[in-house]
Design a binder for these strands. Sequence first.
DNA 1: ATCGTTTAAACATGAAATATGTTAAAAACC
DNA 2: GGTTTTTAACATATTTCATGTTTAAACGAT
Lengths: 254, 254
Amino acid sequence: MKYVKNRQKEIVELLNQTEKVLISDLSEQFNVSEMTLRRDLEALAQKGVIKRIRGGAVKVNQGSFELPFEIRYDKNHDVKDRISEIAANMIKDGETVVIDTGTTALAVAEKLKERNNLTIVTSSLRVAWLLADCPNINLIVTGGVVRNGERSLIGELTEDVYDVFFPDTFICGVGGVDITSGFTDFNLDDARVKKKAIQASQRTIVVADNSKIGKTAFAKIAHLEEVDTLITNKIANTDVINQLKKNDLTVVLA
Amino acid sequence: MKYVKNRQKEIVELLNQTEKVLISDLSEQFNVSEMTLRRDLEALAQKGVIKRIRGGAVKVNQGSFELPFEIRYDKNHDVKDRISEIAANMIKDGETVVIDTGTTALAVAEKLKERNNLTIVTSSLRVAWLLADCPNINLIVTGGVVRNGERSLIGELTEDVYDVFFPDTFICGVGGVDITSGFTDFNLDDARVKKKAIQASQRTIVVADNSKIGKTAFAKIAHLEEVDTLITNKIANTDVINQLKKNDLTVVLA
DNA sequence: ATCGTTTAAACATGAAATATGTTAAAAACC
DNA sequence: GGTTTTTAACATATTTCATGTTTAAACGAT
């Protein structure tokens, strides 16, 4: 079961480099039958990650398109683990914390599961589901329209929550961090929610692994100055990191 | 897996009559090893349904206390299936439907999964989770505080949603239906939300299996006249049903 | 303290669910 | 038309989960 996901993840990554993969090649590479690969490709095509062609698959990644949550989830898992550990340690007992959508923010939520006396606000159904039965956490879900796949809550209902809530810390996930474009996200609606959460919160901590550094996604979330801390990992492009540090942004490398 | 839940359910029901059960007795009765029963009792004690004592367990059910969701879920499953089927058939494509918390309402959500062009509003995380990836359903989650175990959303945030939303139909779950006390629920906060949903909705359909008929739970939801239709099953107490029918309430027997 | 009972932990077994492989017929491509 | 790929159905393997067994430790009562 673990292998299935790993293999499918690798197929996607392979496709990002080679434009096209053949079932016959993959079969040799992974040492599994062609039928299995066919099933893998079918599953991925179903999610819209790849496009099936006769004998293999081609990439469909046109434009700023985000991979499905499940695929992203175990990508860079060890990195996210380190980043989220640091983020979790910056949260003190008794705080009111907003936990954002996205895989890295979900990892932070996992670290906070056993903590006491926390009030957690989230617009991610996944975070809500994860923390729903923690008796020691006061969990609040923002309302909103459920965005398919991502399971994030968006829209007016979500945004309006930040007119009445003023949390201590916002754990924010992003699609890209760049010197000129600032913090961006793949989805406009999600970006709007993040923007309001930043404005309402005392401090904002962005968690983003190195794959996001230097990238620009579709929708603007905030300028660099609006965020307090960026937690990323060491492999991130040092040039960009150094420039980010000049912009009144505390950068922590996991 | 199905047997585990059934056995645990039966243990709880047994405990409601006898105050106390012994592992040695249960082992004989269910024809399973004592170790298995020990595991069952541990699981139930974990959820707070029973209290573990040396050699067995005693009931903890003081007052009007509701069993945990998981235990209730497969109780009367076939009945809920019939009731929810009827409820689902009363929903027309294009409607805006509120789906409540509780096991029977969740069963209705399951029936609506494949339907098209529905807007579904829910204050149940379980319903939200179930429908989250249905591309043909426009899913809206009310905000609110997550109630432990039940995974329902409660509080001001939840209630206020019904100041701005005016749905066509409200599929409502209840804790009890009675001639004099009307519709009641075990939880005050849930009851408040239900009350507001009834007021905001064009019509309210209560789904409740026979175990609820003639019962009164803790918190008042609504008078009989405020609800349009009650869907229950045939085994329900006929006297009560007949009286209910006199109160301008359409009763449908599954 | 001491005896019998109950529990907890570790490992073994069994059954159900899931993933993978194989085969043969159908469909698609050239 | 002949080759390759796909689909579907079934067979096999793997994994997971519930259950059982055993043993040592913990507990309660005397």
